[in-house]
Design a protein around this nucleic acid. Structure first.
Lengths: 114, 114
DNA sequence: TAAATTTACAACCAAATGGTTACATATACC
DNA sequence: GGTATATGTAACCATTTGGTTGTAAATTTA
């Protein structure tokens, strides 16, 4: 079974879980309470997320706190960033701005040719 | 059946297809030749990608050319960007750099408080 | 027109996915 | 100790996924 970051965030429930615990660690029951599926179903999502390294679970008494470890999301960010030229709006204008600034600032030898 | 951008790019074969045709449109057979699975399997991936709006197919004689339409990837970019603070390295330094530049350049009224 | 090429798609299949219920275990609380 | 709470997990199920083979249709090309 595939277990990578892309597959992990493909499921909307898992994206919600990430969103939920990114702000504040929650124990497993607390996470599950925010959904109308069973605790077991959420537990399985959490297991997938831990297996992918996006969530870390820390025991505290009888509770397990789910903590978001989102470093791996940079893989997704990197992959998508390759194609930012294709939806050039916001991001593109940010980059253009940066390029302009750099041009003014640093006087690079050659222009924007790759 | 779910059919969204996140699910579309969850499959590594589909990510490869996107990569392949982002540079240059290819007809369906040409895409399939780059994989060791059947043409039918690739055809199905292409169907999913078109249903998600990431690929557009244009007929040209008996051939269909697959063209990448990657605008929708900004959904993924946006979602991931929320969490960039969590893997602060490269991206973070880019942003810091931009912030510094802006600070020098524009003298903003208030700092980085959101 | 006949043959080759390119695509569409039906029918089928094994495995993965996302869910359930039921039960076991571990810890906290009285 | 006994009970309540929090978690782990087995067993099961329907659907989706990603693949296959086989066949049909459309378009060139000879």
């Amino acid at each position: 079974m595939r277990r990578d970051t892309f597959q992990a965030i493909a499921d909307p429930t898992r994206r919600e879980i990430i969103n939920m615990i990114a702000h504040k660690s929650l124990n497993i029951n607390a996470v599950a309470e925010n959904f109308d599926t069973s605790r077991t179903a959420i537990y399985k999502h959490l297991k997938i997320l831990t297996e992918c390294g996006l969530v870390q679970i820390k025991q505290q008494g009888r509770e397990r706190y789910c903590e978001a470890k989102l470093d791996k999301l940079h893989e997704v960010s990197d992959w998508v960033a390759q194609y930012k030229q294709f939806w050039n709006e916001r991001f593109d204008s940010l980059e253009n701005y940066l390029n302009e600034i750099q041009a003014k600032d640093k006087k690079p030898k050659n222009g924007k040719r790759k």
